[in-house]
Design a protein around this nucleic acid. Structure first.
Lengths: 209, 209
DNA sequence: GGAAGATACGAACGATCGTTCATCAGAGAA
DNA sequence: TTCTCTGATGAACGATCGTTCGTATCTTCC
């Protein structure tokens, strides 16, 4: 398997040991990704999951809770990968940022639909589900914010606008899920390198020429 | 009016001289922006426009054509502003990029909802409407691509990844519509300066310290 | 064997959807 | 005045929506 072979694109939700639960959650991701939250019907989800409409309600109390559940799982997986990548990186801000970006790109490549849904359908969450996911998302963003803060403190990042830099890097990264294609011009590794360079450049870190 | 006063937020569609046409198109923008294309109903649009449901169909043949029409008008306005800004700028790539970013930010500030709808609902266009808008959007992107190409050619922009740079700058810019608030920390001018600096830094242009 | 719980299904509910229709008021040309 | 065109309306159509219900089939444990 060389750098251009497709990554192992697995389903976001592995078997949960409970009937059709994993199939239903993964089907919901696909359906919401293909048609959007309001554009996809519970009947669509059931069809993709290979089960009946009414059976969905043995696992999820409502359509909006179904969205909340898949978004929570996607963000959990992303955050776990980011933390692991940052922990495994060196101590300096630049290499931490580089590894965080690489982990983010890997997640997009392997779970593109999950990232598309996360990016586009969060706005349809309401009430407690929205509050909970916004909090989780803030925690994800905090990973990047801490790296930026570290780099700014030690002089590695010289951007005069550090306050919004982490968010800007994150939005550019999440947007990759909107245009990435497995057969695109860049390999996965090249894509990760590109995005890391964009991020470090935006932060005004020293870069090799 | 100082830099922190709210910009003149006018409706995207001025009076067209045809009955309730402008009110309907602007109402559609608001409705799609608030609930998304599939989440907003034609009854919502009619209510916002202050007219009856059936009257919408005297102006637009279908809901999807209504979306196409407002997206087209939004993109037309944005492209016109970008071209004018670039034409008024100096001849060097850096100042052209700076002015293009400033014009983009101004458009977001004055027509935030239009930008939100443009960013989030394009995917629901189908058939010829989709083809037409993608072509218009490519033309908009080409404005930035030409600036990047010029800067790379004359050595102003030293990014090793120029091919995707314009798109990355554009996605970061359009994402501003998702979080901009008129009462935010930065004034409009500061926001434009910030985004311009992010863009030039990402392109690895020389920056004042 | 039989009670209990988990998993599954088809049918149906009321609500809302996009769209169509018949009709009407008013303005302007003949 | 009469005809015509534009703009506007409420009622209704068939389709689809999210959700509920009654019931049937398994598995598990006593």
């Amino acid at each position: 398997m060389n750098a251009r072979s497709p990554a192992a694109v697995t389903s976001l939700v592995a078997d949960t040991g409970r009937g059709n639960e994993a199939a239903i959650l993964n089907a919901a991701l696909d359906a919401f990704g293909a048609a959007g939250f309001h554009g996809a019907s519970m009947r669509d989800v059931a069809k993709r999951a290979g089960t009946s409409l009414s059976n969905l309600y043995n696992y999820v109390p409502s359509k909006s809770r179904l969205l909340a559940e898949v978004l929570r799982r996607a963000n959990d997986e992303l955050t776990a990968r980011l933390r692991a990548a940052v922990d495994d990186a060196g101590d300096d801000a630049a290499s931490r940022m580089r590894e965080a970006v690489r982990a983010y790109v890997r997640f997009i490549v392997e779970h593109q639909v999950a990232m598309v849904v996360s990016t586009n359908e969060v706005r349809y969450l309401t009430g407690a589900d929205r509050v909970a996911l916004v909090a989780e998302r803030d925690a994800t963003q905090a990973v990047f914010e801490q790296i930026v803060a570290q780099g700014v403190a030690d002089g590695t990042f010289r951007t005069p606008y550090p306050d919004d830099a982490a968010r800007t890097v994150l939005t550019a990264l999440s947007a990759v899920s909107g245009w990435y294609r497995a057969d695109g011009r860049l390999s996965r590794g090249q894509l990760a390198e590109q995005q890391a360079r964009y991020a470090l450049a935006l932060l005004e870190a020293p870069l090799p020429h």
